[in-house]
Structure formats: structure tokens, C-alpha cells
Design a protein around this nucleic acid. Structure first.
Lengths: 182, 182
DNA sequence: ATATTAAAATAACAAGTGTTGTTAAAAAGT
DNA sequence: ACTTTTTAACAACACTTGTTATTTTAATAT
């Protein structure tokens, strides 16, 4: 006897996510989402308790999107942190809005950088172990230095102050690994 | 014959700047500024054509504030880019809101990172020349690498992912200079 | 067919934003 | 005193935000 739902949680979340991706997280508003879905604001508040609920869901989807992005990424780097770093910088360049949300915003429910990077597959731990296998004496310290560098390049790309392509970035990471790991 | 002005441009700008510094640039609104000044919104629009005019003035004041901050900063680093880098990271830690405005936001009227850093005194050029004097073969390339690293540390401090004090940071910069400059 | 019941639409509220008439107030020349 | 001129306040407009009360719509069981 109840009316069949025509606006699903999936429709709302996908639309809100695309909006965060294309127009920025701060532009995800109830009215804009509902207009894009093609409904009133009401279905949003049936599915989510309030806007914060939807925004948390968008954030979660964004973090999963990043992990999937990395999983799909070419894994041919010769150095530890090379693939992860190249994917990270490339993600910053290609998905500025999502990168900002995940790694530079002060969104309340944000995970720490390490937690998000590591993911369920232990991306960071794996790379640190790889460095250890290569007789690096302080793999954690190496990770710290490498990641400060990688994060710096990624953040500079957001403001247009970093303009190297993937091949050049790859060389740069190899050079910085060589510099830091002696 | 004119009525004496009781709300000056200086009062408005100083108040708006303090607000950007303490509560964030995005919270500088006409009503909040006027409430803090203790007047109506009217004087703001007498002095500035519109809010963008005030915001640009706040931005300019913030960039001057950064340059003054650097000028006052301890200049005892033994390496090129050491003082500038340490001041930059320290500024990011102490003045998160202003740092975000100046170096990570997408404010329309923003200067490029290099332009702002260099300032009127040629801070960057001076450091690059210092590196050249020390027989560095590619001082510009060294600056790029060093600054990617420095910017990375500064940005990570914004999100709580970098937690070294000034002494540790100083050591880190010396180490990275040693690594990059061979 | 009709009653039931949940979904969706409509419309509104309250709070916030930039901005702009209009009006009151005050200082100074006449 | 009176007029001129500038400043500032008040109030309002038009807009956006999250949220919610009310009404309409649709699907099904009876």
C-alpha cells in the first residue's frame, strides 16, 4: 500500500558525489542536489537525517574513490612510494575538488592522512616494508620525508605552482628517493 | 561643513583583517565586520565599493603581514632556503587561516607563490644566489625541490599531519638540503 | 471502489548573505 | 539661525542556506 519510492539513496548520493567532484564539496547543498536529481528537497531528508549525514556519505565515497583510483594506477615504479606518490600527485591534478576535500580541508569527519592513504590494503605499510627490504635503515623516516615532498607537489598543483607531467614527476620522485635514502 | 567621520577605513580594514586571522577569510562578511566595529554595514560600503574591495584589501594586508613576519624572523640558518623555509612552516603553524588564504586558497586576486614569497626584497632570488655561491650547479632546480618539500611540511601542519617543532624542522631542512644539493 | 500508508511536492520558516534606498544627525559656511 | 553637505543608521530587498509542516500523489490491501 505504500507509494513506491522514485528517488533512491543511490541517486541522491551519486548526484551529490558528482557535484562535489565537479563543483566542489562546499557547493553540495540540499537544493542543488535535489535540482540535479530532479526532485524536491524532501527525499534527501527522508534518506538522511540532515545534510551532514549526506556530506559524510559523500566524503566516504570520495575516500573510496581515491583508493580505487590508486588500485587502478600503473604499478611500475622502481622505488618505494613511487606508485603511491605518483598516483597521489596525479589525483591532485585530475581531481582537485576531491583532493582538497580528502587531504587539505578541515572537514570534521576527516580521516588522518596516514589512515586514508593506508586504506584497507595497507598501502603505506607495504611500501615501508619494501624500503626495508632494500636495506634502508630508517624506512619510517624515509616515508615521512618522501611524503612531505609528495604532498608538497600535490598541494602546489592545486594552486598552479607545480606544473610537471607524470614522466617528469616520476623522475623527480626517483631523484628524491635517491637523495633521501642514503 | 561635513560631518566628522567616526568609522574610518583603518578601523574597518583592521577589524576585517583580525577576523580573517582569527576566524578565517571565509567568515569575513559585511555584517560580522560591522558588528565587530560597532557600526552598521553602511560605512563599509562608503569606504569600499563592495565586499570584494574589502576582501582584496584584507588579502593585501595579509600578504604584507607575511612578509613582515619573515623580516622579523631569526636569520641564522646555515643553508640556503633555511630561514625562508623555517619562517614559512612556522607561519603555517601559527597563522593557519592567513596561510590558507595566501598559499592554498583559490581566491581570485591571489598572487603566485613565487611572487608573494619573493616580495619586494627578492627573498627567493637572494637565496638562489646564495646557493649559487656555494657551487650548486642547478640552484633553481634546488629551490624547486626544497620548496616542494617546505610547502609540503607547511600544508601537512594545517591538517595536523606534521608535528615537528622548529628545532626538528630546522634539522630536517638541513638534511633535505644536503640530500638535494649533491 | 475505497481506505490505508508512505513518498514526494509545495510552500514556508528562520537565519544568513550582499546591497541599497531613505532618513536622521552633525559639522561648518553663510 | 539657516542651509549645505557628508556620515551613519535603519530598514528593506532579493537571494541562499538548512529544515520542516502540510498537502498531494501513488500504490496496494481490502
Amino acid at each position: 500500500m505504500p507509494r513506491k519510492e522514485s528517488v533512491t539513496e543511490e541517486m541522491i548520493l551519486n548526484t551529490a558525489f558528482e557535484m562535489a567532484k565537479n563543483e566542489g564539496f562546499e557547493n553540495v547543498t540540499a537544493r542543488k542536489v535535489s535540482a540535479a536529481v530532479g526532485c524536491s528537497t524532501q527525499p534527501i531528508f527522508r534518506v538522511y537525517e540532515n545534510m551532514e549525514g549526506l556530506l559524510v556519505a559523500v566524503y566516504e565515497k570520495a575516500s573510496q574513490y581515491f583508493l580505487d583510483y590508486f588500485k587502478e594506477y600503473d604499478k611500475s615504479s622502481l622505488i618505494p612510494f613511487g606508485d603511491l606518490g605518483l598516483a597521489y600527485i596525479s589525483f591532485a591534478k585530475e581531481e582537485k575538488n576531491l583532493f582538497k576535500l580528502l587531504f587539505v580541508s578541515d572537514f570534521q569527519k576527516k580521516k588522518s592522512m596516514y589512515e586514508l592513504l593506508n586504506g584497507n590494503d595497507g598501502n603505506v605499510v607495504r611500501e615501508i616494508n619494501l624500503a626495508r627490504q632494500r636495506n634502508c635503515k630508517d624506512p619510517e623516516g624515509l616515508f615521512m620525508k618522501m611524503w612531505i615532498f609528495i604532498h608538497g607537489a600535490a598541494c602546489m598543483s592545486l594552486t598552479g605552482d607545480y606544473d610537471l607531467d607524470n614522466a617528469q614527476t616520476s623522475e623527480l620522485l626517483v631523484a628524491s628517493y635517491a637523495a633521501f635514502s642514503r
